[in-house]
Design a protein around this nucleic acid. Structure first.
Lengths: 210, 210
DNA sequence: TAGAATATAGCTGTTTACAGCTATATAAGA
DNA sequence: TCTTATATAGCTGTAAACAGCTATATTCTA
């Protein structure tokens, strides 16, 4: 290959991960691995001295964490592409990384091919995620889209209410105490921010919950 | 005109109407007016003896009324076209005539051109109505289509209910007694056949009343 | 595995809803 | 003009809804 390979650095507090990644990346011969670091404090001076095209960045790090480090990296070298590489699966962490300038998020149990693909996509300016992360984000999206999240039981009871069945009858029908049904009703009212059953059914209809 | 004109008969208990119609029809020279009768008993023997293509038939007649006479005419001579020509504006009478085989219904205050047009349409096998009758039928249709007919007040209150406003507050808002609002609610419940407010709002939503 | 969410059950008031009636004045329609 | 529909107001019960709490067992899930 005549073109110079993109320079790549790893920041991960697990030496084993660094070791494994190094070997795999060597095999592929697509990137020039110019440095591995187990914390952000060591990496920052290096970045200031050396141009780095792409950084694989863990979230959990001793001292400054990945989220903050990402921000720092982008302010020092905006042309550097940061790709989160972590085991963290919380949506909040993922979002924070993206807000701070990361170009994607790859879960550590992703395959090497998946990782290579994501790196290339990131280098092309795209935001990419490994499959597992994608699933998490989509699911979160779905939950959020469903403006209101009623449980199975609540949905069941809501439908009965919409059919004009009263609390005592619902209790009978579902073999529950009337107190239980009443509690479910209270919860539904709260979740949909309704003052009473009439408004509840209105809102439920608007949101297509029936 | 070389073609034989269609034969036409009038059955109407008002001599003035017969007189006027006769003159107008003569002018148009489109039909061969072969007989005028002020009651059905006189007309039936005539019809049995003479082929009549079209009959202008009033509803209010001495002895046998227009609805029954129409049926009789169609059973004696199915090829005879009967066109109701009356002042009656009740939907039930119109429907009865049609059920008994009439090909249309022209109100007596229709213009002569309207009448001529309707006769021709009827001869062509169509069911026609003068404009005023059409309006009556359409309006009746609309009323019936609107599966449920709520009054202005009821609709107003229904919307407030759907917004979660309780009876006492609705009463305040509309400067009414709470008893009045309660009565409106009862009426709405009955009209929409709902057991309670929850079901009411469901049904109202289904019927697009909100 | 610990914490969060869910489903369950309970108690006590107060407020609303609902059923069942009567009644009257006005407006709209046949 | 006469009947029907509408809008108004009233009364009396009973049933249901609602607000505000506590509490526990189970199930999800990070």
């Amino acid at each position: 290959m005549l073109l110079p390979k993109p320079t790549l650095a790893i920041v991960d507090d697990h030496p084993i991960v660094i070791e494994g990644l190094t070997k795999l990346l060597m095999k592929k011969e697509k990137f020039d691995l110019i440095g591995s670091f187990t914390n952000g404090m060591d990496f920052i001076p290096f970045l200031k001295a050396t141009p780095v095209k792409i950084v694989l960045l863990d979230i959990v790090l001793p001292g400054i964490d990945g989220m903050d480090l990402c921000k720092e990296i982008k302010s020092i070298s905006p042309t550097t592409t940061v790709l989160a590489f972590s085991n963290h699966q919380e949506r909040s962490g993922i979002m924070k990384m993206l807000e701070n300038g990361a170009s994607g998020y790859v879960l550590k149990d992703a395959s090497i091919d998946e990782l290579m693909f994501c790196i290339e996509e990131a280098l092309n300016g795209k935001i990419t995620f490994s499959k597992a992360i994608n699933d998490i984000l989509i699911q979160a999206q779905l939950k959020e889209n469903r403006l209101t999240k009623l449980t199975k039981r609540e949905t069941e009871i809501l439908k009965l209410i919409a059919n004009g069945i009263t609390t005592p009858h619902i209790a009978e029908h579902l073999f529950l105490s009337k107190f239980t049904v009443e509690n479910h009703r209270k919860n539904i009212l709260q979740k949909l921010k309704a003052k009473n059953m009439a408004e509840l059914i209105s809102i439920a209809n608007q949101q297509g919950l029936l």
